[in-house]
Simulated scan of single mutants.
Amino acid sequence: MTVLTRITAVAATTVMTATVAFADGHVDRTGWPDSFTVGTGSQGGTYFGYGSGWAGIVSDVLGVNGGAEVTGGPMQNMALVHTGDLAFGMTTMGPAAESIGGGNPIAPGLQMDNACAMFPMYQTPFSVTALASSGIKSIADIPAGAAIGFGPAGSTSDTYFPRMMEELGVDFDRRNGGWSDLGGQLQDGLLDVIAFAAGVPVPAVSQLEVQTDINIIEFTEEEQAKIIAAFPVAAFDIAATAYTTLEAPARSVSMWNFAIANCDLPETFIYEVVDAVMSDNERMVTAHRAAQSSLPEFWDRNTVMAWHPGAARWFTENAGAEISADMIHGDM
């Protein structure tokens, strides 16, 4: 698991000089932090690229210094945002549900319910990549004892993909690491397969297909149905345009990702953060193509986390969201 240098907790963050809300539209910045950090994932993964993008947009629009931090991914982000070590993070529905229920391996038994939903990001497809020279063209082709890279320890991929492979009867040797490192290991012949759970296009895969011939392996209809029945995922097709290797959509499954915020951050701050991201999708897509799904109408894809009050207000006022009181932090 990635070791993250502890940063100043949100509660101890130096705040900007408080201002007053005026009728002419000035925003009340009482309690706003003077900087923020977004917990992402490993370099070479979609989380880092996407998180760096929206951190930059928010920083530019709001005039608050912000940036992205490499972390171990969704599970660690839930822990860091819950404790206030990070203001923001990114997670998927599965790890979020497990963390809220006390099942996060970083702190077993701790109910991480102080990490609030902020806005929908994109769906994470689960996909398998192998070198074309390996001859692996399907899940059934993966040899017994194959070395499979599942991403950073505690990531969505590492949490769910090994279980999925076991469900499909694959015998494997489990490996962990950052996506860029695993891509290099695959290219060097140290891994047989990489099992990716990341928004497409995954930078590590895009880099691989420029450097060598690869196979992006789709699930059969039967394999897809079996996984959907066993895990909190939905059917998904990876578009043929995502990678030059693909000639047709690749059958997969996916899990939704959401941006999260420490629940104690000021409502006005979170409202403006959400507004900066959700009000200009074109700019977000320029930052990362996965943001094509970062649209207000997907607010209802959050089914497990309490909403931050500032985010709930934005989606209610601007997206016609009907969020029940028991799904808003502080009203529960």
Rank of each mutant, 00 (worst) to 15 (best):
L4A: 11
T5R: 06
V10M: 07
A11S: 13
M16T: 12
M16S: 12
M16L: 15
T19D: 02
G31R: 08
G39E: 06
S42W: 07
G51P: 04
W54H: 10
I57N: 02
S59C: 04
L62E: 02
N65W: 03
G67K: 06
G72M: 03
P74E: 02
F88L: 14
M90G: 02
M90C: 00
P95I: 03
A96P: 02
I100N: 03
I106V: 14
L110R: 01
Q111G: 09
M112I: 04
A115D: 11
M118D: 00
M121F: 11
Q123W: 05
T129E: 07
A132K: 15
I136Y: 01
K137I: 09
D141N: 09
G145C: 10
G154P: 03
S155P: 00
D158Q: 11
Y160I: 13
E167I: 10
D181W: 08
D181H: 10
G183A: 12
D188L: 11
A195F: 08
A195H: 09
G199V: 11
V200M: 10
V202R: 00
V202D: 06
Q211N: 15
N215T: 13
I216L: 15
I217M: 08
K226Q: 15
I228V: 15
A230Q: 08
A234I: 15
D237C: 04
T245L: 06
T245S: 15
A259L: 04
D264G: 11
E267P: 01
E267M: 04
T268R: 12
V273Y: 00
D275K: 06
V277Y: 00
V277D: 01
N281C: 01
A287T: 04
R289A: 04
R289E: 01
F298V: 00
F298N: 09
D300Q: 10
R301F: 02
N302P: 03
M305P: 02
A311Q: 00
W314K: 02
E317H: 07
A321W: 08
I323S: 08
S324I: 05
I328T: 06
I328P: 00
D331G: 00
M332F: 01
M332G: 08
